[in-house]
Deep mutational scan, measured.
Amino acid sequence: EPELVFKVRVRTKDGRELEIEVSAEDLEKLLEALPDIEEVEIEEVEP
């Protein structure tokens, strides 16, 4: 069974934007590691 992958769009407080694809596990780590995120948009990517 393929692992869930999420497309994550992040905007930081200083206005930088970042778009990455991460696994569910990595997404959890990412959110814990970035306390200064202003906006996060997450969508599931079809395998």
Rank of each mutant, 00 (worst) to 15 (best):
39 E>S: 14
46 E>R: 14
30 L>A: 04
32 E>K: 12
15 G>E: 01
44 E>S: 11
26 D>W: 08
37 I>E: 04
41 E>M: 12
47 P>R: 13
45 V>S: 07
13 K>M: 07
21 E>W: 15
24 A>T: 04
30 L>Y: 08
43 E>W: 15
37 I>Y: 14
17 E>C: 15
25 E>S: 13
5 V>C: 13
29 K>H: 05
34 L>F: 12
21 E>Q: 11
21 E>A: 06
18 L>G: 01
42 I>K: 03
15 G>W: 01
36 D>I: 04
47 P>L: 11
39 E>D: 09
18 L>S: 03
41 E>P: 02
14 D>Q: 04
39 E>N: 09
34 L>Q: 04
16 R>L: 08
34 L>W: 12
17 E>K: 09
28 E>K: 13
41 E>R: 09
3 E>L: 10
23 S>Y: 08
42 I>C: 12
20 I>L: 10
31 L>R: 04
38 E>M: 12
23 S>D: 04
42 I>T: 03
33 A>T: 10
10 V>M: 07
3 E>N: 10
24 A>P: 06
17 E>N: 09
6 F>K: 03
28 E>V: 12
34 L>R: 05
41 E>Y: 14
44 E>K: 12
8 V>Q: 00
12 T>D: 03
27 L>W: 05
8 V>E: 00
1 E>S: 13
25 E>V: 10
46 E>L: 13
9 R>F: 02
32 E>P: 02
42 I>F: 06
47 P>H: 10
38 E>T: 09
15 G>F: 01
46 E>W: 14
34 L>M: 10
14 D>M: 06
4 L>N: 04
6 F>P: 00
27 L>E: 00
36 D>R: 04
26 D>N: 08
21 E>R: 12
16 R>F: 08
10 V>I: 13
12 T>F: 15
41 E>F: 13
34 L>G: 03
11 R>P: 01
2 P>L: 08
14 D>P: 01
4 L>K: 15
33 A>I: 09
34 L>A: 03
46 E>Y: 14
23 S>T: 11
17 E>Y: 15
35 P>E: 14
1 E>G: 12
38 E>D: 10
45 V>Q: 06
8 V>P: 00
11 R>L: 07
33 A>F: 11
21 E>S: 08
7 K>L: 08
41 E>S: 11
17 E>S: 10
15 G>K: 02
11 R>V: 06
2 P>R: 13
31 L>H: 02
45 V>T: 07
8 V>D: 00
40 V>T: 03
36 D>E: 08
9 R>V: 03
40 V>M: 11
12 T>R: 06
35 P>Y: 14
30 L>R: 01
7 K>G: 00
29 K>F: 06
46 E>T: 12
10 V>E: 00
30 L>W: 11
27 L>M: 04
27 L>N: 00
2 P>F: 09
20 I>F: 15
29 K>E: 05
3 E>G: 10
32 E>S: 12
40 V>Q: 02
34 L>K: 02
43 E>F: 15
20 I>W: 14
35 P>L: 14
36 D>L: 05
20 I>H: 02
3 E>A: 09
23 S>L: 07
11 R>D: 00
39 E>G: 09
41 E>A: 07
40 V>N: 02
18 L>H: 05
4 L>H: 08
29 K>T: 06
37 I>D: 06
15 G>D: 01
31 L>Y: 04
19 E>M: 12
30 L>D: 00
42 I>M: 05
28 E>L: 13
4 L>P: 06
3 E>T: 11
28 E>Q: 14
38 E>P: 03
43 E>S: 11
38 E>I: 13
43 E>N: 08
20 I>P: 00
13 K>N: 05
29 K>P: 02
2 P>V: 08
15 G>I: 00
31 L>N: 01
23 S>V: 05
44 E>I: 15
6 F>G: 00
35 P>M: 14
22 V>T: 03
7 K>A: 02
37 I>A: 10
27 L>H: 01
24 A>E: 05
8 V>F: 04
3 E>Y: 12
30 L>I: 07
1 E>V: 12
23 S>I: 06
1 E>K: 14
43 E>K: 10
40 V>F: 12
26 D>C: 11
45 V>D: 04
41 E>N: 09
43 E>L: 15
14 D>G: 06
8 V>C: 10
8 V>A: 02
45 V>M: 10
20 I>Q: 02
22 V>R: 00
11 R>N: 01
41 E>C: 13
20 I>N: 00
15 G>Q: 02
19 E>Y: 15
19 E>G: 02
44 E>D: 06
13 K>A: 07
32 E>C: 15
26 D>G: 09
13 K>G: 04
26 D>A: 08
9 R>S: 01
32 E>T: 10
6 F>W: 04
40 V>L: 11
25 E>R: 14
26 D>I: 05
7 K>M: 06
14 D>N: 06
21 E>I: 15
47 P>A: 09
35 P>F: 15
26 D>T: 06
27 L>V: 03
5 V>T: 08
19 E>Q: 10
31 L>K: 03
33 A>P: 01
30 L>S: 02
17 E>W: 15
7 K>W: 04
26 D>S: 06
4 L>F: 10
47 P>F: 10
27 L>T: 00
18 L>M: 09
22 V>K: 00
5 V>W: 13
35 P>V: 14
24 A>S: 06
39 E>F: 15
19 E>F: 15
37 I>K: 04
27 L>F: 05
38 E>S: 10
46 E>N: 12
2 P>D: 06
22 V>Q: 00
6 F>L: 08
13 K>F: 05
13 K>Q: 05
38 E>Y: 14
34 L>C: 11
17 E>D: 06
32 E>G: 09
15 G>T: 01
25 E>D: 09
22 V>H: 00
23 S>H: 07
8 V>M: 03
17 E>H: 11
24 A>K: 10
34 L>I: 12
25 E>W: 14
25 E>F: 14
7 K>Y: 03
8 V>W: 03
4 L>Q: 08
37 I>L: 08
36 D>K: 04
32 E>Y: 13
12 T>G: 04
33 A>N: 11
25 E>Q: 11
15 G>Y: 01
20 I>A: 03
9 R>M: 02
38 E>V: 12
17 E>V: 15
24 A>Q: 07
29 K>R: 10
21 E>V: 15
12 T>W: 15
37 I>G: 06
33 A>R: 10
20 I>K: 02
35 P>I: 15
12 T>L: 15
37 I>V: 10
24 A>M: 11
16 R>S: 05
19 E>T: 14
15 G>A: 01
7 K>D: 00
21 E>L: 15
12 T>Q: 04
6 F>I: 04
16 R>W: 11
9 R>Y: 03
33 A>V: 07
26 D>V: 05
